[in-house]
C-alpha cells in the first residue's frame, strides 16, 4: 500500500507551463486572464442580446401578409403594405451581383494562382484586389453613379428627355455590388487553388493536357468548395449592403420596370431592397414605421444566418484527398 504513488490527474487540454509554476502568476496576469474571460463572455452576450431581441421583435411584428403584399405609399401603418418588392429586389440584386462577380473573381484568382506573369503585374493586381476590398461601399456607390450617368451607359438605365441619364437601376447597382463580392470570391478561390498540390497539375501535364484544360478539367472542379464558399460570403455582403442600394437603385418603393422587354426592362428599372426598406422605415428615414422596419430586419437577419449556415454546409462537404 505504501508504495502506491498518487498520480495527479492529467491536466485538462494540456495547459502551457510547468506544473507548480502557477505561483508565478502576478496580479497583472490574473487581471489579464479575467479580462480575457470577460471579453469572451461579452461577445457571447452581445450576440445573444442581438439575436434574442431581433427574434422577439420579429415574431411580434412579422406577419405572412407582409411578405406577400406590395409596399404602398401611406402614412398610416396599416395601409402601407408589406415588403414583397424589397424581398424581390434583394433577390434580383444578389443574383445579378453574383452573376457578374463570379466569372470575374474566378478568372482573376486563376490568373493569380496559375499564371501570375509578369510578377510585378501579379503583385499589382493582388494589391488592387485588396484596395477594392478596402474601398468603402458608399464610395463605390457614388463612383458608380458617376460612371453610369455617362451617356455611353444610357442603355443600362432610364434616360430622361434632355438625354440626361438617370444612372440608377438594378443593372448599375448590381455592377457595383459585384465589386464588393469580388475580393471574397478571389480570396477563397485562390486559397482553394493553392491548396492543390503541384503534382496534381504535373500529372495532368504528363497526360499531354495544356494549362487551360488542366485548369478547367482538374483544378476548378477540385476547388469547387472554395469557390462556393467565396460566392456565399459574397452574397452575404451583397444582401447586407445598404449604401449602394440607397444611391444606385433609385429607392422607389415598388419595383418599377422601364418599358420594353420584360426582363431587360425590369433590370433597367428602379426598386428597393430589404436593407433600404429597413433604413427608410427607421426613424432615420422618412417612413417612421419601426414595426415594419423590425419585421424586415428580422427577415434580413434570417437570410444572412441562412447564408452563413450554407457556408458551413459547403465547408463540411467532402474534401478531395490528395496523396502527398
Amino acid at each position: 500500500m505504501s508504495t502506491h504513488v498518487q498520480v495527479p490527474p492529467p491536466p485538462p487540454a494540456q495547459p502551457l507551463g510547468i506544473p507548480g509554476s502557477e505561483s508565478s502568476w502576478s496580479r497583472g496576469d490574473r487581471l489579464g486572464v479575467a479580462a480575457a474571460w470577460g471579453a469572451g463572455i461579452l461577445l457571447c452576450l452581445v450576440a445573444a442580446a442581438i439575436v434574442l431581441y431581433m427574434l422577439s421583435r420579429g415574431l411580434q411584428y412579422l406577419s405572412l401578409e407582409m411578405l406577400v403584399s406590395h409596399p404602398l405609399p401611406s402614412l398610416d401603418q396599416s395601409q402601407s403594405g408589406g415588403f414583397f418588392d424589397p424581398i424581390e429586389g434583394t433577390l434580383i440584386l444578389t443574383v445579378l451581383g453574383t452573376a457578374i462577380a463570379v466569372p470575374l473573381g474566378v478568372g482573376i484568382a486563376v490568373w493569380l494562382s496559375e499564371y501570375a506573369r509578369p510578377a510585378w503585374l501579379a503583385r499589382a493586381v493582388e494589391s488592387g484586389v485588396e484596395i477594392v476590398a478596402g474601398t468603402p461601399s458608399i464610395v463605390l456607390a457614388i463612383f458608380g453613379l458617376l460612371v453610369f450617368q455617362q451617356s455611353v451607359f444610357g442603355f443600362l438605365s432610364f434616360t430622361a428627355d434632355g438625354n440626361a441619364v438617370f444612372g440608377r437601376s438594378f443593372f448599375t447597382a448590381g455592377a457595383m455590388m459585384s465589386l464588393i463580392a469580388l475580393p471574397l470570391i478571389v480570396g477563397s478561390t485562390r486559397e482553394a487553388l493553392q491548396a492543390i498540390p503541384a503534382h496534381v497539375r504535373e500529372a495532368s501535364y504528363a497526360l499531354g493536357k495544356d494549362r487551360i484544360s488542366t485548369i478547367r478539367r482538374v483544378l476548378l472542379p477540385a476547388s469547387r468548395r472554395g469557390i462556393g464558399t467565396g460566392i456565399t460570403l459574397g452574397m452575404g455582403r451583397i444582401v447586407g449592403d445598404t449604401a449602394i442600394v440607397v444611391v444606385l437603385l433609385g429607392a422607389s418603393l415598388q419595383i418599377e420596370p422601364e418599358n420594353g422587354t420584360p426582363i431587360w426592362g425590369l433590370l433597367k428599372g428602379t426598386g428597393s431592397t430589404l436593407t433600404t426598406y429597413v433604413y427608410n422605415n427607421s426613424p432615420a428615414g422618412e417612413g417612421g414605421a419601426p414595426q415594419k422596419a423590425y419585421a424586415a430586419a428580422f427577415v434580413l437577419l434570417l437570410i444572412v444566418i441562412a447564408l452563413n449556415f450554407a457556408v458551413d454546409l459547403i465547408a463540411r462537404g467532402k474534401e478531395p484527398q490528395w496523396t502527398r
Partner: peptide
C-alpha cells in the same frame, strides 16, 4: 471546449449582421 465551440458561430454571426440592422437596434 464548449466556449470555444460557442464562440466560433458567435463571431461569425456578429460579423455577418448587416450594418442597417445594427443601425436599427442602435437608433431604436
Amino acid at each position: 471546449v464548449f466556449m470555444q465551440r460557442l464562440l466560433r458561430p458567435v463571431i461569425r454571426l456578429l460579423a455577418a449582421v448587416p450594418s442597417v440592422v445594427y443601425g436599427l437596434i442602435g437608433i431604436l
